[in-house]
Simulated assay, not measured.
Amino acid sequence: MKEFLRLLAPLRHKLMAERFLKWFIYGETAAGILCLAVVVLSKFWTEIPSLPLCGVFVLLGLLIALGAAFFLRKVTEK
């Protein structure tokens, strides 16, 4: 059984990478939509700092992707 689990380890790593990339795309798409909304709003209200807010949204999307991929549901032997 240990030999079988050892042989499945590369597949587990690939599945974790695939899950991370999927959540990364979702998170960064949401961050891009929020950045677009901030940039459009900053054209009407000049008090909104668009560049720092967009940077925060992109980093938040990355953190959501990391958290969802590695801590939400882990890839197990099943």
Rank of each mutant, 00 (worst) to 15 (best):
M1K: 08
M1S: 12
M1R: 09
K2D: 15
K2H: 14
E3W: 07
F4V: 14
F4G: 09
F4W: 14
F4K: 15
F4I: 15
L5S: 04
R6I: 08
L8Y: 07
L11N: 08
R12P: 06
R12C: 06
R12H: 10
R12S: 02
H13K: 12
K14G: 11
K14H: 11
L15K: 14
L15M: 15
L15E: 13
M16Y: 09
M16C: 12
A17Q: 10
A17M: 09
A17F: 09
E18P: 00
E18H: 07
E18F: 07
R19G: 09
F20W: 06
L21R: 05
L21W: 06
K22R: 08
K22N: 06
W23S: 13
W23K: 11
I25K: 14
G27W: 01
E28T: 10
E28A: 09
E28K: 10
A30P: 07
A30R: 04
A31S: 05
A31T: 03
A31D: 03
I33P: 02
I33T: 04
L34M: 09
L34V: 10
C35F: 01
C35W: 04
L36S: 14
A37L: 09
A37H: 00
V38E: 01
V39Q: 08
L41N: 07
L41C: 10
S42I: 00
S42A: 06
S42G: 01
K43L: 15
K43H: 13
F44W: 10
F44N: 09
W45V: 13
T46D: 15
E47Y: 14
E47W: 15
I48Y: 03
P49R: 01
S50V: 07
S50N: 07
L51E: 15
L51M: 14
P52G: 00
P52C: 01
L53A: 05
L53P: 08
L53H: 04
C54D: 02
C54Y: 00
C54N: 01
C54P: 04
V56E: 10
F57V: 03
F57I: 00
V58K: 11
V58I: 14
V58S: 13
V58E: 09
L59M: 08
L60Y: 14
L60D: 15
L60W: 15
G61R: 00
G61L: 01
L62S: 11
L62A: 10
L63D: 10
L63Y: 12
L63T: 12
L63R: 11
I64V: 12
A65Q: 04
G67Y: 07
G67K: 01
G67E: 04
G67D: 03
A68L: 11
A69H: 03
F70V: 00
F71L: 08
F71H: 09
L72M: 06
L72G: 03
L72T: 04
R73D: 11
R73Y: 11
K74A: 05
K74G: 06
K74F: 01
K74N: 05
K74P: 05
K74Y: 02
K74I: 03
V75M: 01
T76C: 06
E77R: 04
E77H: 11
K78W: 12
K78G: 13
